[in-house]
Write a protein that binds this DNA or RNA. Structure first.
Lengths: 211, 211, 211, 211
DNA sequence: TATGAATGAGAGTTCATTCAT
DNA sequence: AATGAATGAACTCTCATTCAT
C-alpha cells in the first residue's frame, strides 16, 4: 500500500537509529561496564527518549549481545581487508598486528567492551563473544597460522586456538591504555613476543618440567 | 583491664572473620563482578548476618580494595618463595611461570577478580591494583628480568614493564579457564611465547616498521 | 511533533501529581518529622508506587525543600490578600493575625512542618525557610510595621525582624494545638501581646537598658 | 559483704556516669534531632563503649525522657532561685526573664532539645515535657502571674497557661540563635512584648474583632 | 559494670521495563 | 516509531539493640 521507497526509506532510518543506539551503548558500556550501564542514558545519549531503545532491542542484555555481534563483524572486515593484501606469512602476521593495533583505538569503546567481556564474569556474554568471533578465528587460523605453518614459517600449532591467542594479546594490550596513559603493556614488545612465539625456538616450558 | 590473652584472642577471631569475609567476597566478585555482587550475600556466605561485613569494611568498594591488597600480598609471597629457590635466569623464569600458573587455580576466585579489575571499567580499582602490585613488579623486574639481562640470558627491556607483561599474560591465560574449560588460550604455548620473547630473536614488529 | 494540547495536558497531570506528592509529604513530615518520615509511604499515600516520587524530586531532602518553598508561597499569597484590603495600620495588624491564625489550621500539616523546621536541628532547612520567607518578611515589614511606624501607630523597630517575630509567634502558637487540643498557648492572648508590644509602653526589659 | 562506703562510692560513680551520658545525649540530640541521633555516638562521646549506655537506660527513647526530666528540674531550680529573691511582681517578672535568657545559653544543648520537643512531632515527648514542666508552670503561675494579678500589677489571666506562654517565648527566642547568629528574633524586644502583654493595654485582638 | 562483635529490620535510592498516548 | 510517567524489585548502608566475655 505504501510506496516502496517509503518502506526502504524507513528501513534506512531505522538502521541508522540502531547504529546510533549501539554507538552510544558502546560508550556507556565501556565507561560503566555492563552492570553499571544505564540503558536510559544510552537512549538519551543517542538522541532519543528513554523508551525508544526498546523499540530496537528487547532488553539491556540484547543490546550487549547485538553490540558484540556488530563489533565482531566490523573487526573481521577490518582485519581481513588488511591481511589479504599480503601473501607472505610473516608479512600477513605483521599486517594482522598492525591492523589489530589500529583497530583498537579507532573503535576504542567497542574494544574496551570486548575485552571487558572476555575477562568479565558474564558467561553468556563470553559464549556469545566466542561464537561471534568464530569466523575471524577461522580466517586468521587458516590464512595466517595454517598458511605460515604450511610454508614452514611458523612452528606447528592449533590454528584456531593460536588465532584466539593472538587476538586476545593485542586486544588486551590495546585496552590497557588507561586515562593516564600508564603503559602496563608495551604493544611493540607484545608483537615481538607473538612473532617469536609463532616462529618458535625450543618448545616446552610450563608444567612439563625442565629435565 | 581485661587480661591480655582475651585481647589477642579477640584479635585472632576478628582476623579470621575478616578472612572469611574476604574469601566470600572473592567468590561473589568472581561470579558476579563488582557491580553484580551483592554485599549481603557475601556476609551471609561467610556465615554472618548481612550487617556484619560493615563492622569490618566501611563500604562495598572498601571490600574490593582490601581484597586487591590481600591478593597482591599473597600473590607476591607465593611467587617470591618459588622463584628465589633458583639461581639461573632461565630457571627463575620457568619457576615464575610454574608458580604463576599454579597460583591461579589455587586462588581462582581471587585471580578472576584481579583480571576482571585489570580489564574492567573501574579506574579506581585499576589504580589500586597497580599500586598493590608494585612490590611484585619490582621484584620480578629485578630478580628475573634484570637478573637475566645482566647475565645475557634475556635481551634488554624495561624490567618493571616486562614484569607487568609477564604477569598479565599468565593471569589472563589462567582466567580463560571458563566453566566448560574451553581453552581459548593454552598455558604451555603462552609460556613458550613469553620465554621466546624474553630471549629474543630479532626485535621489531608493529608500527615501528622493519627499517 | 505531538499536538500541543497533549503537551499541556501532560503538564497539567504532572503538576497535579506533584501537588499530590507534596500534600502527602506535608502530612508525613508533620506526623513523623523529617527524619522519621518514610518517602515510600509518602509516595503510596499520594496514590503512587514508591518509586514515582523520584520522578518528581531527586531526593527526600529535595521534597522538604520544595515543600518549604510551596508553603511559603501559599502563605505569602494568603496573608497579602487579607492584609492589603485594609488601610489603617492597626487594622492591617489585626488582619495579619486573623489571616495568620486562619492559615495555620487550614494548612495544618504544612504549618507544623514549618514550625518544626524553625526549631529543628537541620541548618539547611532553617536557611531555606529563611530564604523562602524573605518576600513575606519584606512585605509584612513594609506594609504593616514600617507603615504603622510611619503613621505613628507603632513604636520604631526594625521592620523585617519584627515581621519575623510576628510570624514566628502565630506559627508557634497555632502549632501547639496538639492532638488532644491541649492549649499551651492562647492565640487571643498572644495577639494581644503582639499588639501591645508593637504599640509600645515603656521599652526596656532584659539585660541591656538604655538608661 | 562489701564495705558500705564501697557501695556509696559506686553509686557516686554511677551517678556521674549517668550525668556524662545525659550531657553527651543533649549535645547529640541538639545537633541531630532525636531521630538523627546515634546512641552509640552518645556513649562514645561520653567516654564509654557503645554498649555502656544500655546499662543506664533501657532504650534510646528512655534517654530522651530522662534528659527531659533532668533538664526540667535544672531549669526549675535555676528559675526559682533567681525569682524568689525579689518580692515585687514587676521585679519578679524581670528576674524571670533575666534568668530565662541566661538559662538558655548556659544550657544550650538542653534548651535546643526542649524547644525541638515542644515543636517536634513526637507526642510522647511533648506529653513528657508538659508533665515534667508542671512544677515550674505551677510555680511561675503562682509566684509571678497570680502574685502580680493579686497585687494589681498584671491584668487577669490564667496563671498556668500564662506561665507556659512566657517560658515558650524565651525558650523559642533563645533557640533561634543559629550558627551564623542570624537574629530572627530579638530577645530584648520579646521581653518587652511579654511585659507589656502582661500589664495589659486594651484587650481584644484576634478573631473577636473590635467593631 | 563495661565492652564491642553480631544482628537484622528498615530506609533511601536506582533503574530495567511496561504501556498508554 | 517515539515518548516518558509509572512501576517495584533489588541493593547499599545505618543503627538500635543484644549478649557473651
Amino acid at each position: 500500500m505504501a510506496p516502496r521507497h517509503k518502506e526502504s526509506e524507513r528501513d534506512a532510518v531505522m538502521k541508522e537509529t540502531r547504529e546510533l543506539l549501539l554507538g552510544a551503548a558502546a560508550e556507556e558500556f565501556a565507561r560503566e561496564g555492563y552492570r553499571g550501564a544505564n540503558i536510559n542514558r544510552i537512549s538519551r545519549a543517542a538522541g532519543f527518549a528513554k523508551g525508544t531503545i526498546y523499540n530496537y532491542f528487547p532488553s539491556k542484555r540484547a543490546v550487549m549481545l547485538a553490540l558484540i555481534e556488530e563489533t565482531a563483524k566490523a573487526h573481521a572486515d577490518y582485519i581481513v581487508e588488511q591481511v589479504m593484501e599480503e601473501e607472505e606469512p610473516i608479512g600477513r602476521l605483521e599486517r594482522f598486528f598492525q591492523a589489530g593495533f589500529a583497530f583498537v583505538p579507532s573503535h576504542l569503546p567497542q574494544s574496551l567492551v570486548m575485552v571487558n567481556n572476555i575477562y568479565g564474569p558474564d558467561v553468556e556474554f563470553k559464549e556469545h563473544m566466542y561464537q561471534a568471533y568464530q569466523p575471524l578465528f577461522q580466517l586468521v587460523g587458516q590464512e595466517i597460522v595454517a598458511h605460515g605453518i604450511a610454508r614452514g614459517a611458523f612452528r606447528p600449532a592449533d590454528p584456531v586456538a593460536t588465532a584466539a591467542l593472538l587476538m586476545t594479546i593485542y586486544l588486551g594490550t590495546g585496552s590497557t591504555v588507561d586515562d593516564k596513559g600508564r603503559p602496563w603493556l608495551d604493544p611493540r614488545q607484545v608483537a615481538t613476543f607473538a612473532l617469536d612465539g609463532l616462529r618458535g625456538g625450543e618448545p616446552e616450558v610450563g608444567e612439563g618440567g625442565t629435565s
